[in-house]
Nucleic acid binder design. Structure first.
Lengths: 243, 243
DNA sequence: TGGCTCCTTATGACTGGACATTATGATTGG
DNA sequence: CCAATCATAATGTCCAGTCATAAGGAGCCA
């Protein structure tokens, strides 16, 4: 009597024990179900998870194959900065630094494939943990896509929390990079000009239209951390690592 | 007649259409199955995916709830640097810069919770794309955990490709950060000292024991990019963005 | 008020069956 | 020898039912 978890674990064991080697084909569901003494659906569920974990590949008619190189993937949960700070046991504070309405800068028009006439709300916000600068948020919101953003104040809570409720199921492109702090970033985040900062950029689309672009500058020493493995469900956490 | 995909899409539609608002409870599986004219298992499968996507939360006896704030998560596939380069249409070249055997430095002993007597293989490798430095790999391998690493040459292929076959199903902690290039990094990657570089650090455990630690320094301007959304399966790609 | 037990309810898992879908590989025809 | 065709084998999905599991909540008792 095996659960789908037992079956999954057993298959991983047999792969790591080199009984089934990378590239090779493993028995079909019917045979496996017989050998484990379960229904085929149970084997199928175990297999579906192995596919999801990037350990095997399946093709109809062809069969199930051990991936030549196991696909290493992390699931990162991108936290709302407020929760991230509060989960670290620090007090959260939000400051709106700057707010204006106008056309998008040229690089942003190009990046989001926007017509040059589009008006955008530009915001600069600072998120603080225990009074120390934690994240600087440079945000542009397309007013043609979310007109409600024209008049909303954004003086109490950041635009991220507001936007996530306006457009919960958007298409997102996110990118991680490193960049040197310019004068503005250095001033806001309390670091030196030229310091290496971790940066996330995210552009959000809703029904094909660009809704918002954000550039998040994290404080010096920030790291985004995640654990993963075959057994454990992947969890991620952000650590400040200040000092 | 609805498939689990139809059901999933319909539920997303009803949440985004504010029929079911964040925090509220949605009907139980039996009622939903009746209303969609399917078996409960089909509704269950749709729900399981919604949980996986971070859109709803489920608790036995309590029911299924629309998450107050949808969990934004990205699935990043961490590419083998060789494939990453070749997929970008560039030629891959590998150079072993330095190799030695000795005790682990103190910071690494602390970080991996190793006894100070442990011997490690230390490697420095450079991965090039079209002849340009792409990634600098500083690698430590615990020889007590993988004795075979003592004598392997690592002159043709990098240790990552070798290790992934030795220990395919390991527990991993991965972290992303930004750091300034020191003299070594600047020299190897052909950038200036102090340049902001994107950095990945990864420590790998096998049956509770630390096997290897690696610090990957990416060339200036590197970004790790991923797209995700409710419909699309998440895909990730790395772009060099040189220039 | 506070804490304990126990019933109930909703999800989670599994069964043994069925039909749908597809890509493969063999067969056939030019 | 190549290309089109087709049977088939494997996965993918679904059904109707059963049993397992966890936790909310009512009721009880101190």
């Amino acid at each position: 009597m095996s659960s789908f978890r037992d079956i999954k674990a057993d298959i991983i064991r047999r792969i790591s024990g080199e009984e089934w080697t990378p590239g090779s084909r493993i028995p079909n569901e019917i045979d496996l179900a017989r050998s484990y003494g379960t229904a085929r659906a149970t084997v199928n569920r175990a297999m579906a998870e192995l596919v999801d974990d990037g350990i095997v590949e399946r093709r109809r008619k062809a069969g199930t194959f051990v991936r030549d190189v196991p696909l290493r993937q992390v699931r990162l949960s991108i936290p709302i900065v407020r929760s991230e700070i509060e989960q670290n046991g620090a007090s959260y504070r939000y400051v709106l630094l700057q707010s204006s309405i106008g056309p998008a800068p040229e690089w942003l028009q190009a990046r989001l494939a926007l017509p040059s006439t589009v008006e955008m709300r530009k915001l600069s916000c600072l998120h603080l943990a225990d009074g120390l600068p934690y994240q600087l948020e440079d945000r542009w919101i397309n007013l043609a896509a979310t007109p409600a953003a024209r008049s909303f104040a954004f003086d109490k809570t950041g635009p991220s929390e507001w936007l996530i409720r306006q457009i919960p199921f958007s298409e997102v492109e996110i990118s991680f990079s490193a960049a040197s702090a310019g004068p503005d970033e250095a001033h806001s985040l309390g670091c030196a000009v030229g310091d290496a900062l971790f940066r996330i950029e995210r552009q959000t689309y809703w029904t094909g239209q660009a809704v918002t672009f954000v550039r998040l500058w994290f404080h010096r020493g920030y790291r985004l951390t995640s654990r993963y493995g075959p057994g454990t469900d992947t969890q991620s956490a952000a650590r400040t690592g200040r000092g």
